[in-house]
């Protein structure tokens, strides 16, 4: 592994590993009730444990000064982290239920944005959880809202939130400066 792929794995391997194990156990062995509950909670798990700490912890422990102070530009750092972790979350969501993909993407993006807003891990988690549950509740049920199924709608929200994260990044730092490793 090289470059930011190494960095992403080294920093997030623990949370990615335990989430993967949990998903595999649920998919392969779990009884129906736990199965149903976990499938529906997966987006929240990714939101709270993958998305929210992503930048909140960097601010809280002041390591953003290290992460964004190397040759790699902050924008590239965020793009690679969101790309890799977002893709991994989508694959795991798809293993559970295709409908979870949209919810999971939304949760992840909401968590990242919350991290920029609060700059603290625990408030970012709280903010994310409240926002996630609120949106899931507003667009609950199997019925379609505005012609979209709620999962698709949440996926669209997630796709909108990711550019918001880049705007917030460029407020905090000289995100797109030259120099790419």
């Amino acid at each position: 592994m090289t470059g930011l792929l190494w960095v992403t794995w080294r920093q997030h391997r623990a949370v990615v590993s335990w989430t993967t194990v949990l998903v595999l156990v649920v998919v392969l062995f779990s009884p129906d009730l736990i199965d149903w509950a976990f499938r529906n909670a997966f987006g929240a798990v990714v939101a709270v444990f993958w998305g929210a700490p992503l930048v909140a912890r960097e601010f809280e422990e002041r390591t953003y000064l290290v992460a964004w102070g190397q040759d790699v530009s902050p924008a590239r750092w965020l793009a690679v982290k969101c790309g890799l972790l977002g893709s991994a979350a989508v694959v795991l969501a798809a293993l559970l239920d295709v409908r979870q993909i949209g919810f999971t993407l939304f949760g992840f993006a909401l968590g990242v944005v919350a991290g920029f807003v609060t700059r603290r891990t625990v408030p970012a988690i709280a903010f994310t959880l409240v926002g996630y549950v609120l949106v899931r509740w507003l667009f609950a049920g199997e019925t379609s809202v505005w012609l979209f199924e709620s999962s698709v709608l949440c996926g669209v929200f997630g796709a909108v939130l990711i550019p918001v994260a880049f705007v917030l990044l460029s407020w905090r730092t000289n995100a797109f400066r030259m120099g790419v490793a």
Binding site: L4, R10, A181
Partner: peptide
């Protein structure tokens, strides 16, 4: 990073520069 050893920190430097 609190969980990084000195070796990890140097790898971080290698992979981001």
């Amino acid at each position: 990073y609190k969980h990084f050893t000195a070796t990890d920190a140097l790898s971080f430097g290698k992979h981001t520069n």
